[in-house]
Write a protein that binds this DNA or RNA. Structure first.
Lengths: 232, 232
DNA sequence: CAAATAGTGTCTGTAAGACACTATCCC
DNA sequence: GGGATAGTGTCTTACAGACACTATTTG
């Protein structure tokens, strides 16, 4: 909607009514925060869930979400919900889909914008309260209320798609990193084996060599890399 | 946001307030309806714009949009705005992006969900009122208010992306069609020359032959095709 | 016949996928 | 040396892009 008007909240439409006189929905955000969890010598891809109102009978889990407050962007609200409900900070989720069935929430007219991001759990774990948060494998996210199972499925598809094009676009790895570290991260996201030589040749055009010494591990020392500027 | 509650609008939060007691944004939809316009013996890709409030001085144009009403989905609102503002029916736009800067609309807190679809103008033209609607080349959409220039750019990118994968996914062509008709439509969307032989070999796996006679045109008659079920 | 469009044969370059091999470290 | 990891050479297959050619119609 786009009528240009004088800049004041006294704006009135042709029938003399102000914007605030019309019914409006509540605006919510829900976030699928996919997390890489260390598991044996690789990673597992899970999704962060938070406990709903523990007073209400048996455990019930959902994606973290909140209503958007006035003066706030959806990104602000996502950050706030992750911080207050799961102790997670520093994420920058992106929009995934808007859920707007008028009857989707029994509390009334609530439109929810689903968001997605990825993080390594070992970088955000210190703030976790295990009684209020849990990490569930993305393949079996459990019973989730509302559209949350749908959100998880879309989130996984979205992130897998991003990770087929470019090296670690969500910056799970700090630079510089070795090709092996990059491959293990991509392996966890994609959930299919990635052959080392093919993967290397796909990624090399989007990487530049970085200085540094990787001796001290088993095997031949590896070259360090950074993301090339063309791959963000 | 996702607390499971009893299904009634009397729901109250821990401080005893109802949903309706919290401030809510107005929810709007805006639609970039890209249109293929016959032009010489090919097509031009344009975007539909509608005139804003003609009483307000010199002409000003914008993408069609409206506020979402209670009980309505965003898809409903998009259909209503296209019908009442441009006389266009039968489209099924898809979500593109949510614009939510708190200060983006001088009338107050307005969150807008941008949508996109494509149509052939010769199929919707009969209802057009030329004083209230116009079609502008997508490369130079003119001065547009709010985020509308951004919406057009995203819409074009989105549609071009869809049309690189599959034959006419938005069903601009009625079945059956010839390879030439398909190529001209894709050519207009992509805005780059498409070589006939390469295009054919890319599309054939997603098409099945259809019966019918195409004699009566210039040159050798062409095979008719339908979309294969795997390319919806 | 010419003009026009439809469709195929084929060459070249590139890249994915796979396997084998070499390279360089730690123990 | 043996084990482990890093990295390269190279073969096969596939396919995009391009050009040339054949095929079938109208006028």
């Amino acid at each position: 909607m786009t009528h240009r008007t004088n800049s004041s909240n006294d704006w009135r439409d042709p029938s003399g009514r102000r914007l605030a006189d019309y019914p409006r929905p509540s605006l919510a955000v829900d976030t699928a925060l996919l997390t890489l969890q260390a598991h044996a010598d690789s990673w597992r891809l899970t999704v962060l869930q938070v406990r709903l109102d523990p007073a209400r009978g048996r455990a019930s889990w959902a994606l973290p979400g909140t209503f958007v407050h006035p003066g706030e962007t959806m990104a602000d609200a996502v950050g706030r919900s992750l911080r207050t409900k799961a102790g997670v900070t520093g994420q920058s989720p992106s929009q995934l889909h808007v859920f707007d069935r008028p009857d989707r929430d029994p509390r009334g007219w609530v439109v929810s914008v689903a968001h997605v991001d990825v993080a390594r759990w070992d970088q955000i774990q210190p703030m976790r309260d295990p009684r209020r948060t849990r990490l569930i494998d993305v393949a079996r996210p459990g019973r989730l209320p509302y559209d949350h199972a749908d959100i998880v499925a879309r989130a996984v598809t979205q992130i897998r798609d991003e990770y087929t094009r470019t090296p670690d676009p969500r910056r799970l790895l700090p630079e510089p990193f070795t090709m092996r570290q990059l491959r293990l991260v991509h392996r966890a996201v994609a959930d299919v084996p990635l052959q080392a030589d093919t993967f290397r040749r796909q990624m090399l055009p989007h990487l530049v060599e970085a200085p540094g010494d990787t001796r001290g591990q088993r095997g031949r020392p590896a070259q360090l890399y950074q993301r090339a500027t063309d791959s963000a």
